[in-house]
Write a protein that binds this DNA or RNA. Structure first.
Length: 505
RNA sequence: GGCGACGUGGCCAAGUGGUAAGGCAGAGGUUUGCAAAACCUUCAUCACCGGUUCGACUCCGGUCGUCGCCUCCA
């Protein structure tokens, strides 16, 4: 894993941590619908967790909700709403989006509003330790003092504190001793809670220090968030946690992912943006997930309809392979990868394979290792994804061969199962049984009723008609019938075994 | 001004000190009544300039360019 602090790759998780790893991801401020950028973290960590579990770890994954915040309060004022209700609404909506995207729930979603007393206690300790002071009902973190004692402020974001004072754009505040100081607690008579310093509410950074360490311990394995949180948010979290615990061990690894950009700039709720759920109408959730996974997490990724169409098309190749495997194997499809690997992998079986079969088999056989190796390499999802396409080609060659043998059929079957297995980690490549459920999940978010018309029966009738016309060599008429079938949402494929219908997305 | 990331074929995107995965698009071909699907073939010397090295796209320095953060933006 790449660590932001060292800018180097480190072995992760450290062997001493086996078998449990602890992860904290900075979550969402709940004042609006989530946009696609907000989903990069959750999608990445959904895959990362599944991957860690696959290679034998137990994962404790926590991501928070910032439901007490300037932005929430401001939005509530603008819309004349109660701010805690507003926060609850968007928390709920966000969870629906996560579900629609097939993202496994975190182990815990702590909210700021449930941790006010904890935060007050936490701030007290920092004050007692001498790293914070009170000023007109506000509590500020004393950055210069902390830095003088520990010398670590700016370590994460590689900032020089002396230069920051002259160059930074933080506005001077009468209450602060120093420009760099930041609020741990803000006086707020209107939306505040009682505290030893009067009515107020937590500053932004304190919640994450408190909630991460409360549930994961003073020192935990990964702290993650988008790149823009590196400074000041994460830098301040480190300072708070160290000022609180007195030790220099907060997160072992800092993992920052890049932005999702759109039209040359970043997606942001404050700028031009769109809600992720708006995409559900146009793209199925796997397309969205595959798009996010199609670049490394440390690179920015540009969203556009063109990109999404490309993803969709590439995905269609896999679907077509699945379709062909299911069509040809039908009932005889073997469900266990291990059975097939054991059977096909024994020397006797190998001896009877043709050269072509042997070649494909060895590629399929080594797939899983390559796939996991890529993910092991700083979570290279794009590399892992490309492995899937690497076995689709040879497997397609096999299954479409006119002289397909039983062995060849089994090898193709194995390739199919390997891809399903990879998909279970990536949250992709569900076969048709699950497709309907996902559509339903997305539709629930959109409030669309799940009406599925029975067009298949009709299409089948038309297909028979087309066959008859073809037999009479009335090709024009046959093509017209085919057009009708396409209108019903099916493709017609003429296979050596006769025509078949394939539902179009 | 400070800090950070990045610049790989028409587009997107991995990767590596020893001559560049994968996807999309393009061209040609096999198959097909046609189409669809599939397969085969074909398409780059890695922004530029220096340096280190037997050898660099990969390491170092510089130049140019793009983007982000420094504003409670994921």
């Amino acid at each position: 894993m790449h660590n932001t602090v060292t800018k180097k790759l480190h072995e992760f998780p450290p062997p001493s941590k086996h078998p449990e790893v602890t992860i904290y991801l900075c979550g969402l401020t709940t004042y609006d619908y989530a946009h696609l950028g907000n989903m990069r973290g959750p999608i990445l960590f959904d895959v990362f967790r599944k991957f860690l579990v696959e290679i034998g770890y137990r994962v404790k994954f926590i991501t928070n909700f910032t439901d007490v915040d300037d932005k929430v309060i401001q939005r509530a004022k603008e819309t004349d709403a109660d701010y805690s209700q507003l926060a609850r609404k968007f928390t709920r909506e966000y969870l629906l989006d996560l579900t629609a995207l097939g993202i496994e729930h975190a182990d815990l979603y702590p909210k700021v509003s449930y941790h006010i007393q904890d935060i007050i206690d936490y701030v007290k300790v920092i004050i007692d330790n001498g790293y914070a002071y009170e000023s007109n009902g506000n509590i500020y973190f004393d950055v210069p003092k902390f830095h003088a004692d520990k010398g670590t402020y700016g370590k994460l974001s590689r900032r020089n504190i002396d230069e920051m004072v002259t160059e930074c754009r933080i506005e001077a505040d009468e209450n602060k001793h120093d420009q760099l100081d930041f609020a741990l607690w803000k006086a707020d008579s209107e939306n505040g809670w009682e505290s030893p310093w009067g009515k107020g509410r937590p500053g932004w950074h304190i919640e994450c220090s408190l909630m991460s360490t409360k549930y994961l311990g003073t020192s935990f394995d990964i702290h993650s968030g988008a790149i823009d949180l590196k400074f000041p948010h994460h830098e301040n979290e480190v300072a708070q946690a160290e000022a609180h615990s007195g030790t220099g061990t907060f997160a072992q690894v800092w993992m920052h992912y890049e932005f999702v950009n759109w039209k040359g700039g970043k997606l942001a709720k404050s700028g031009e943006s769109f809600a992720v759920r708006d995409l559900f109408e146009k793209y199925d959730v796997e397309t969205i997930r595959q798009f996010i996974l199609s670049a490394k997490y440390r690179s920015p990724i540009d969203f556009s309809d063109e990109r999404m169409e490309e993803v969709k098309k590439s995905r269609a190749r896999i679907d077509n392979f699945f379709f062909e495997v299911r069509r040809q194997l039908g009932e005889s499809i073997e469900e266990s990868r291990h059975n097939l690997i054991n059977k096909l992998g024994n020397p006797h079986e190998k001896k009877n394979m043709s050269d072509a079969e042997l070649k494909v088999f060895s590629e399929v056989e080594s797939f899983a290792e390559k796939f996991l190796d890529d993910l092991c390499d700083d979570f290279n999802t794009q590399g892992a994804l490309s492995r899937v396409f690497e076995i689709v080609n040879p497997a397609n060659t096999l299954i479409n061969a006119p002289d397909l043998s039983d062995t060849g059929r089994e090898i193709a079957n194995l390739a199919y199962l390997e891809i399903l297995w990879a998909g279970s980690i990536l949250g992709l490549f569900n076969d048709e049984r699950d497709e309907l459920m996902q559509i339903t999940a997305a539709n629930k978010v959109l409030g669309i009723g799940g009406i599925v018309s029975d067009s298949k029966g009709e299409a089948e009738k038309l297909l028979e008609e087309r066959q008859k016309l073809k037999g009479e060599k009335k090709y024009k008429e046959a093509d017209a019938v085919r057009d009708k079938i396409i209108e019903l949402g099916f493709e017609v494929r003429d296979t050596p075994d006769g025509p078949v219908l394939k539902p179009v997305e």
